[in-house]
């Protein structure tokens, strides 16, 4: 029974996606049901076979809209029962606001992108200086921008939690989202290594001073990781 319900839900999601003219918001919510069916290990081999299964069941007995809606509601209830933490996130006030407001997404994304420029503007400025660009800039005072970097990170953490709560299943089982979180963790550890490992003698990093090879490697890695974070973030909508 569960198999049929999930297969039907998957075919509903596939049908909506294939229609192509539905709002992206709707595609994201319905696709999460299909994605969750796969992620939770139920016997849905592929969306093609799921659609075929649903088609054969609808051929034998005509399925009404009301029955489909009931099946869909059952599938949603099943996935919520399976993941209480995600269910908690979904029914927070923030989650409800983002789901129900038409302009919450562009509003939050504007802040997410502004936060990104604050975060990466400071990070790139420091990394580029370590790599030898603008060697006339002393490194120590460049770290006056660090509070700005942390404010940018805070803005993106808050807006990111808002995105996550609007439909936790979209993100929790999304490979791009998982890679993005892992990369942000790596970037944080990399920055910590820079601060604790090679950047101990702040006052000696004056104008014209060339950074050590290790510092340059850490900075190059930092730029690569952050560019990968942007890439993974943009691919969340496409995986």
């Amino acid at each position: 029974m569960m198999h049929i319900v999930l297969a039907a839900a998957a075919s509903v999601a596939g049908g909506v996606a294939a229609a192509g003219h539905a709002a992206g918001h709707l595609v994201a919510s319905t696709a999460s049901v299909a994605g969750d069916a796969v992620a939770s290990g139920h016997a849905v081999a592929s969306s093609a076979s799921a659609t075929a299964a649903a088609a054969s069941s609808s051929a034998s007995s005509a399925v009404t809209d009301a029955q489909l809606n009931a099946q869909y509601a059952a599938a949603v209830a099943a996935k919520e029962a399976a993941y209480p933490i995600l269910r908690f996130c979904k029914y927070t006030a923030v989650g409800a606001w983002v789901r129900n407001s038409a302009w919450a997404f562009p509003f939050l994304q504007s802040w997410h992108f502004i936060g990104m420029t604050m975060l990466l503007g400071g990070v790139f400025a420091i990394d580029l200086r370590v790599l030898g660009v603008a060697r006339a800039v002393p490194l120590a005072p460049l770290h006056r921008f660090l509070p700005l970097v942390f404010v940018g990170f805070g803005i993106n953490l808050i807006t990111g939690i808002c995105f996550f709560c609007h439909d936790p299943w979209v993100y929790a089982f999304n490979i791009s989202f998982r890679i993005k979180m892992l990369l942000i963790l790596l970037a944080g550890l990399n920055a910590l290594w820079f601060r604790l490992g090679v950047f101990l003698d702040l006052e000696h990093w004056g104008p014209g001073i060339e950074a050590s090879r290790l510092a340059k490697v850490i900075s190059a890695v930092s730029i690569v990781i952050w560019l990968a974070v942007i890439t993974a973030g943009r691919y969340i909508a496409f995986t």
């Binding site: 996606a17 994201a28 420029t117 995105f163 909508a237």
Partner: peptide
């Protein structure tokens, strides 16, 4: 420009599903 660009994405790209993230 950033804010205009973000709102722009939601006023033109709705039909190709570029929503989440």
């Amino acid at each position: 420009a950033i804010v205009a660009g973000r709102y722009l994405a939601y006023s033109t790209f709705a039909d190709i599903g570029a929503s989440a993230g």
